[in-house]
Design a binder for these strands. Structure first.
Lengths: 110, 110
DNA sequence: GATCACGCCTAGATGGACTAGGCATCTATT
DNA sequence: AATAGATGCCTAGTCCATCTAGGCGTGATC
């Protein structure tokens, strides 16, 4: 009966995507897989969340798309982090650390 | 130019409210103040978020309201945690720990 | 040449948080 | 006693990230 919790913490997807392509460009599904894998399958990224998020990030200038070919020999859009995206990842990571520290501080009270 | 971040992490308000009345009943504004204070003013709870959340929680049977008088001698609705609410707080805390651990694990990768 | 997996895409719904008000009551000021 | 301010509660409307539930095209497999 308990309402199902989402697969993500609201508002963290952008940060996770930026992180997933920090080292090397990846295509959409590759990014989702990477996040899932890096989190030991705890986080799940639905496609209906993923693609809109990628457009948001590209519109903000934080990532840039390039056409390419996947490992499975299929056309795919590879996204890479821009300089602004790198800054954004840093900013979001700091904000995340600050907020979670505050929440954990509340939860830790007697 | 950067979009303003919300005062809370989406989806954590219910848990924070339950936590704020874990030890003793409080009224609406008192709960908001308590959360703010316990987080060293990092978290802010808007009234437009607070009251709908209180109704949600009461409808779920996790908190129960009682009429009372505030320290400022005004009528106020005091909320106390129910047994189910205590269980819920525990469940949400665990879920939060699990999700943040996963996210931090992603962020910690090379 | 069917079927399946891959990769991308989108409309619509959901729901929690926020904005921006309002109302009633008590206290303080004059 | 009239006004102003603080306290406490309430709500309509909006916003927006995420999810559901589809669809499309193409390469691989048999």
């Amino acid at each position: 009966m308990a309402k199902e919790k989402p697969d993500l913490v609201y508002g963290t997807l952008d940060m996770l995507i930026l992180k997933a392509i920090q080292l090397e460009p990846r295509h959409g599904l590759g990014i989702a897989d990477r996040i899932q894998q890096m989190s030991d399958e705890v986080l799940r990224v639905e496609q209906g969340s993923l693609y809109p998020a990628l457009y948001r990030l590209e519109a903000q200038g934080w990532i840039k798309a390039e056409e390419g070919i996947s490992e499975s020999n299929r056309k795919a859009r590879f996204y890479r982090l821009t300089a602004a995206g790198r800054k954004q990842l840093e900013a979001e990571t700091e904000h995340w650390a600050r907020m979670t520290a505050a929440i954990n501080q509340v939860l830790a009270k007697v």
